[in-house]
Simulated scan of single mutants.
Amino acid sequence: MVYFQFARTVPLPLDEAWRRLTDWPRHGQVVPLTRVTVEPSGPTRQGTVVLARTGLGPLAFDDRMQITTWHPPTEDTPGLCRLEKRGRVVLGWAEIEVRQGPGGRARVLWREDLRLRFLPGLFDAPVRTTAQLVFGRAVNRLLRMP
């Protein structure tokens, strides 16, 4: 498994940072060659399934995730969303935490434990580097998009 994490502090209210990061279809707009769908449609909640399909034609794979923790932020508590990756190729989990940061800004913590089935541990370092780069850029773009 490949574990990585990163943090961002942005001049947004907590609820706006949360909204931008948990609008799942928007992830498809910022992750290359990816389309994101949500089942069931409607508000996100525990049990919602997020499906990210990445690639082209027969060279695509699905990252099927189910939300197991869904606690939007309040004035008193940080927000936390945990997604369990339950696909045939991508396994592990991801957590998005949004909390109060310095100067009233939102502090975003992204933690992820990622495993690609059938890929030997020899590839852990390049997978970690690539995943951290791709997800870091995606989060940056999501937080800048209105």
Rank of each mutant, 00 (worst) to 15 (best):
L109W: 07
R117Y: 03
L114M: 02
C81E: 12
L59W: 15
R107N: 12
Q100M: 12
P120W: 03
E84Q: 15
G121S: 14
P120I: 02
Q66Y: 00
R86D: 13
R107W: 06
G101V: 02
T68N: 01
R64M: 01
E95K: 10
R88P: 13
R111K: 11
G92A: 07
V98I: 05
E112H: 12
P58K: 08
T77N: 12
L91G: 04
R99P: 10
R64G: 00
L114C: 02
L80H: 09
G104W: 05
G101A: 08
W110H: 15
V90E: 02
G92L: 05
V90G: 02
T74I: 01
E97K: 13
G79Q: 09
D63W: 00
V98E: 08
R105I: 07
G103A: 11
L116H: 12
V108K: 07
H71A: 15
W70E: 00
P58C: 02
C81K: 14
V89A: 12
C81N: 09
L59K: 11
E84M: 10
T77P: 06
V108G: 08
T77G: 13
A106L: 04
L91W: 07
G79L: 09
P73N: 01
G79R: 09
R111M: 12
P102H: 12
V89G: 02
R88L: 13
P73W: 00
T68E: 07
L116R: 14
P78C: 02
P73E: 03
W93Q: 13
V89N: 05
L80R: 12
D113N: 12
P78R: 05
V89F: 10
R105C: 11
P78Y: 00
T74M: 01
H71Q: 15
P120Y: 04
R88C: 13
P78E: 06
F118R: 13
C81W: 08
A94F: 10
P78V: 01
E95R: 11
V89D: 04
T69I: 10
E112Q: 15
P72K: 05
L119G: 00
P58W: 03
L109E: 15
P72C: 05
R105N: 14
L109I: 09
P73Q: 01
G103T: 04
P72G: 05
R105Y: 07
L116N: 11
L91I: 04
P102D: 15
L80N: 04
T77A: 14
L59S: 13
I96P: 04
A60R: 15
G103Q: 09
D76V: 01
G87I: 10
P58L: 12
E95A: 11
P72Y: 06
T68A: 05
K85F: 07
M65V: 00
P73G: 00
R115K: 08
A60M: 08
P72L: 04
A106F: 05
L59H: 15
H71P: 10
P78S: 04
D76W: 00
L83S: 15
G103C: 03
G121Y: 08
E95T: 09
D63G: 01
K85T: 08
T77S: 09
L116W: 13
R117Q: 11
P73C: 01
V108R: 04
W70S: 01
E84W: 08
T68K: 02
R111P: 06
R117K: 10
L59T: 10
E75Q: 13
W93A: 10
R99S: 14
